[in-house]
Structures are given as structure tokens and as C-alpha cells.
Design a protein around this nucleic acid. Sequence first.
DNA 1: TAGTTATTGTTATAATATAACATAGTGTAA
DNA 2: TTACACTATGTTATATTATAACAATAACTA
Lengths: 130, 130
Amino acid sequence: MHKEHSLTKNQQIIFDLIDKSTEPLKAYSILFNVQKKGIKAPLQVYRALDKLVEIGKIHKIESRNAFIACHNSSCQVAKATAFSICEICEKVTEISSAGLSKYLANFKDKDGMKYSKYNLEFFGLCKKCR
Amino acid sequence: MHKEHSLTKNQQIIFDLIDKSTEPLKAYSILFNVQKKGIKAPLQVYRALDKLVEIGKIHKIESRNAFIACHNSSCQVAKATAFSICEICEKVTEISSAGLSKYLANFKDKDGMKYSKYNLEFFGLCKKCR
DNA sequence: TAGTTATTGTTATAATATAACATAGTGTAA
DNA sequence: TTACACTATGTTATATTATAACAATAACTA
């Protein structure tokens, strides 16, 4: 079990928005959407995002500069992430595969080095766009 | 064999710079370094970078917004990339492992979908920083 | 050699992210 | 309960990364 983090007001507002979204959200789109709730500046958004990423409640899709809620309930290791990204509709799905995460966590590079932290982004076409 | 691409002047200048570098280069750092060669605007850099990425001569390190020359001579599939990134010194190394690329190319998600295109970034500490 | 396409040059601006500093709340230990 | 450390907040300004729009030029090709 890992420690439960109680979110602060800004963190909660921003997490709720991302969690309800069906697609990854970008920082300035988040900012626009929470301005009515009193969050007025980019930095307020980025600070909340940083914290949410740190505690594993959300993930950043690096190739898209966008944020998605973690839907991997067994994701103790928030730092080992994998996604599939549709190149047409931009749908992003978090992949939770025990086999994959086991393979990657055990992968050794040429120097015999292992990595518990990684980010993998697969690109292709989703069911609908195929 | 895949088609040989002869680089244009700007592409060659920018590729040479990245290829000689021991670390990933950022777009505006590249811009600064090639201004003496007549490349004055960001767009000239980004256009060359886009093309170089497209033809597989360089790769973008998404989590760092930086570019590195492809050192994987057998890398026919420029779109299937893996790197290790040192979280202290930021050293980036391209991983060329037949096993890894085979595993990832054959990986099937829950819908049975396979992906020939992916980007994997491992994070950890390099030899020196360990 | 005309037509097409890719590349270049240029200015302006959009989108993403952080620096710096002041203030306020929260937990905790003497 | 007060002083301390720590985290979060609010705010303005600015840095960094990337693209839009348009004109001109070079390279390819039928």
C-alpha cells in the first residue's frame, strides 16, 4: 500500500477535470476550463499538474504535451507507464499489461542496467479509425 | 534497403551539428549554433528537424524536447525507438536490442492490436552517475 | 520547358512552461 | 500555543518551444 495523498483545492479541481475527460487535456485547455473556479494563471495549473503526476494520479503523454488520469488501478508504480495513441483521432489508452511491465522492468541494456522507470508510447490506429 | 535521402543544405548543416554532438540538442540551441551559417529563423530549424526525423536520421527525445542522431545502423524502422536517459547528467543513449524491438513489435494490446511504431524512454542513472 | 513539388526565407504569433517574489495555510515539536 | 519548517497559493513577468501565412527559389519530372 502506498500513502494516500489528500489533494489540495487546486489539485482536486484540476484532477476532477482531467478524470472526467475522455481525452488527454492540455495545460492551457485546463486553464481555460478552470478559470471560472478561480484558477487564473498558468503556473497554478502547472503546479497542480506537477504534483498530480508526481503522486501518480495523472500521467503526461509526452509526445502530445497532454495529461490523462491514471486508469490503472494496480498502478503502484506510477513511473512505469505505457499508452497507445491513435494517429488519426488522437485517442489515448493506458495499457496495463502485467507481461509488458514485467518485460520492461526486467529488461537489461548492454551494460546490464535495469530500469524501473519508463514511458512507452505506441502509435497506430484505434479500432474505430482502422 | 531503403531509399537514400540526399540532404539539402539546411538539413545537412543541422544534421552535422546534431551528429557531432555528444548530447541531445534543443531546437533553439541548434538555431544559435547555426546562425553563423545563415540559418536565422526557428522555422528553418524546425523544418529541417521535421524532415530529418521523418527520414530517420535523427530522433526526438520527447520527454526532453531534444534531438539526437540515430546511432542505430540497423535501424530500418526509424519509427521504433528506445532510449535510456540519465536523470542526473541527462545523458541519452539509443538502445538497439533485437530482443526488445521484437518484443515490442509483437506486443498485442487487449484488443489484439499490434504496433510497429513506438517510442520508449527508460529513466535511471547512467554508469557514471550511479 | 512548362508544370509540379519540395525547399527556403521572412515576419509574426501561437502554444507550452518556468522564474521570481510575496502571502497564506498546515503540520509539528518545544 | 507559539515558533519553526514546509507546502501551497496568488501574481506578474518572461522564457522556451513550435507553427501560421505568404513570397520566392530551386529541383524534379513528364
